[in-house]
Design a binder for these strands. Structure first.
Lengths: 191, 191
DNA sequence: GCACACAGACAGACCTGTCTGTTCTTTGGG
DNA sequence: CCCAAAGAACAGACAGGTCTGTCTGTGTGC
């Protein structure tokens, strides 16, 4: 029943996408509302109609970020799997693709938690839940390759390797931690 | 040749210690100069005489933080070693002590890098160097227990486990990742 | 008297959030 | 087909607060 342009809202989507780009690049506190509306090309009232406060915008952005990240990661992983790589190897290859992607600045969920400095903030809570979901994905990958028992045993440790690799990739400005993490993960499974 | 109070500067030290406490608790961007001087009980001009800009204060704070952290960590580790724990086990026990300490909010160096969002900022560069030094300490611990060859081989992976444990402890609000990391580290050495 | 630090006003920029208009598009009645 | 009504979003002024950084006095200990 609707047609030309917006089924939900054109402006809303533009705001979320712009805010996600700016928040990821410069941080949620460093980027002001004025900059978001300027770069999104919307009026201030339009933003405040869709998001009653900046905190609600931040929450909407991290939710959108999860969708976008999951899609990116799945696409990368799929490509490696189709080229013959094993499930877990594909996972770490995708991780490295992410580290090498232009504008990489670490995990937005970790960064946002660090910036907000408030574990009760809705965006912080959502970020913590995202990590659970991401580690669940990791567990499924391990499971597919190694079975239930091994997956249950080693996934928590591999998850630490993955998180450590993300942080180290940022601090060292290098994608290499992905390889270190992959080798260690395989060693944990073998051991 | 000086006497009663300040050999370098009493006020300077109070500023740095107060700023470190506030910056760690709430983040470097969330805490303003006004709050630092109010809680430190100094005049604004006193702060700006010692630190020409907030960026320079941030740099001084992370430098001080490294000293303080190293001392805390060494004290914790020493206690576990004196109680008979092996070097690497003492390291992870100290890590867990840190996670359980009141007001724990993760690694200040990681958090500051995330907030500054600028790899060229002096405080970001110092933070990256701190990580190198911290991992060097870890390597020495592994070396003492397992010798040069093993240390060179497994320390990079153990460092990822440690960083991952720090991040996970914050996001999950639990000290348990320290145990997961310890077990995985021992498994990597055995494997 | 002199150096140091406290106290607080001040400037100029920027922040979030509110408000008033204007323009454009869609929709529906005659 | 036409025109009016209504909704959505653009544009930008505005208020009230906070930010960094500067400046002028006042007090205090050597």
């Amino acid at each position: 029943m609707s047609k030309t342009s917006n089924s939900k809202s054109d402006a809303r989507q533009r705001i979320v996408e712009t805010a996600e780009r700016l928040f990821y690049a410069d941080g949620v506190r460093a980027v002001g509302i004025d900059r978001v509306i300027a770069e999104a090309g919307v009026a201030k009232m339009t933003l405040y109609k869709h998001f009653p406060s900046k905190d609600e915008l931040i929450l909407a952005v991290v939710k959108y970020r999860e969708e976008k990240f999951d899609a990116m990661f799945a696409k990368w992983m799929e490509r490696h799997r189709k080229s013959g790589l094993a499930p877990l190897a594909s996972f770490f290859a995708a991780l490295k693709d992410w580290f090498k992607s232009p504008g990489f600045r670490g995990c937005m969920f970790i960064n946002t938690c660090a910036e907000l400095a408030d574990a009760d903030h809705p965006a912080s809570k959502f970020s913590a839940e995202h990590k659970e979901r991401f580690h669940e994905l990791l567990k499924q990958v391990v499971q597919e390759e190694q079975g239930d028992k091994v997956a249950t045993k080693v996934t928590p440790a591999i998850a630490l390797l993955v998180e450590g690799a993300i942080v180290s990739a940022v601090m060292r400005q290098s994608p290499k931690p992905a390889d270190v993490a992959r080798d260690a993960a395989l060693s944990l499974i073998a051991g």
